[in-house]
Design a protein around this nucleic acid. Sequence first.
DNA 1: AATATTTTGAGTATCGTACATCAAAACATG
DNA 2: CATGTTTTGATGTACGATACTCAAAATATT
Lengths: 357, 357
Amino acid sequence: MVRSDREDRGRAADGVPGRPTVRDVAREAGVSLATVDRVLNDRPGVRKVTARRVAEAMERLGYQRDMAAANLSKRRHYRLVFLLADGTNSFMHMLRDAVRNTASFTSMDRIELQTVLVPPFDGPALAAALDALDPEETDGVAVVATDSPEVRDAIARLAARGVRVLTLVSDAPTSVRARFVGIDNVVAGRTAAGLLGRFCAAPGQICIVMGSALLRDHVERRLGFETVIAREYPHLRCLPPIEGRDDADTVEQLLSARLAAEPGIVGIYSLGAGNRGIVRALDRRRGDPRIQVVVHELTPYARGALISGVFDAVINQDAGHEIRSAVRILKALIDGRPTFDAQESISIDIFMRDNLP
Amino acid sequence: MVRSDREDRGRAADGVPGRPTVRDVAREAGVSLATVDRVLNDRPGVRKVTARRVAEAMERLGYQRDMAAANLSKRRHYRLVFLLADGTNSFMHMLRDAVRNTASFTSMDRIELQTVLVPPFDGPALAAALDALDPEETDGVAVVATDSPEVRDAIARLAARGVRVLTLVSDAPTSVRARFVGIDNVVAGRTAAGLLGRFCAAPGQICIVMGSALLRDHVERRLGFETVIAREYPHLRCLPPIEGRDDADTVEQLLSARLAAEPGIVGIYSLGAGNRGIVRALDRRRGDPRIQVVVHELTPYARGALISGVFDAVINQDAGHEIRSAVRILKALIDGRPTFDAQESISIDIFMRDNLP
DNA sequence: AATATTTTGAGTATCGTACATCAAAACATG
DNA sequence: CATGTTTTGATGTACGATACTCAAAATATT
């Protein structure tokens, strides 16, 4: 009753079962190694007929280039740059830590990671940082994008000069970035609404706290959230969002004012950073009926607030996954390889007190 | 205002900035390449003083062996075997698919994956399958363990013959498996309780459906679940669990009987497989007050039930992550390398209608 | 001191690919 | 047909390690 399957594409070449090599391809195509090599690395001096013969031979044999050997030979180094936002944003700090952590493991694979910090919410500064990168010394870039025209153009310039660019966490969909690595923020907003809608049994108002309408991820989260609340939870109503610029003090001030002005608030959805401000604003109005709180990003602080019961749920994206995924995708883009998409989708994690990692 | 950090350990060796190689180590230690190689692959014929000199030289230079080059030279293949349960269990099918998918990508790294299916809930059969593996042709094994003495012993025998063994999804903690890859099932049970406790506002009984008390993961989930319900949701009471053997028909039959016998049931926690049986049993009693349902594993079927509103939440572990993690860990164990633990912890995913991937 | 044994050095081939050079062959052009 | 140009072949070296052989040197044993 024990069945067994081999999952490798074990092909017999000569006597040894190993994978086909360039030599096998050369023999199969009836050309020399040099020609196969020329085709493989598209170097000039091969007629298209010959090139096709080689390609067909590779097809027939199921030839797969051994990237480890190729890189060994090339002494190739992948030089990747991460452009992250500077400032007090805890999630950005987690991304920075993740880059540092990942770097120590990817150095074995000839992948070098570099972090560049730019001021937050500042399109021109980000564009300048992108332009400052030397395309001769950079193979790939992952950027937490501000969705502004300057940034789109700077990405286009980099891409035109042969650098692979992808956006991270916050997208700039109209740019020529090869890919976006991050969660679907509309879905994240919907998820928050699904939680908050169930948690708030009594009718009332929901206060949304966002960082900036310049950040695509914030805009998308708000959209998803408001849509689901309006459609599925008619007993709740969303107030116009507070823009706290991801800064705890600003958030505290604005939210305190709002809470004082609107006594009917039963839930808060904070979709950016500055969670300390939320806790401090809530602390001030002890005794009032319990407000349900859903926030984003499982920072150490948010974790504590979950445990103490101030926050009810946290929507999270795993910074480590995102960095590693960005590295894998950039490497694949640079190698001209396909990506393993199933592995690269970043999931929207829900954390409550009970399933904290 | 733009700061920049290099995260690679860029060391200058000669004129080129590359990493130190065996030649550098040999020079630094004042020995020949052959001796360095002997130390590196602990082959006999090196005095311990010399070995120490070499080790110190490697330390000083920060030498890191280039595994890609080493494997190229060794023509090493990592032969890994996955022992999964046969049968109708959808999650096992997802694991099988994940192995197949992963295999096509790991073959580039000289990693060959093989799947062996064994009858479910059958310790002796699993032990026999483990014993049937040829240690000469197997470098690593990942096994969905039945927590029984036969299996523990079989794992010990394999490990003693030099095969790296880890448990997958369901652990056998007292065995000598090098590691467990999977979620913390006690925490998963607690999470389910946190959800069901909030979803069930009215007092009543909770019906637990499990597969078998032989499976460690099921036992642990039950434990976590019952603990939290008893402690935090006193308006709910857990009935003695139903053992459905992960079989839809059995589950349907037993659950229907239970629902008929106990009219006060307000929630169901299904912690094993056989979700079709749950849906069918619930279909029979249309019109009665809505029962909240939390189940495990986001199979295509569970997905449909979430969308149609029969299930309220699904606790999931990502089969793809688990397989890839198992592969990475086994490879690291075989290479004698440290593992990147942050990457390898499998998270407990909560899915509701709103955040389906 | 003579011999046996262990430890070390030097050299070479190999893995699968990249890349450069030079000569030979094929093709095109006037 | 001679000439020029493009395409192809043959060959060698390199990448960073493994793994072997054979001889020399350093120890250990009697």
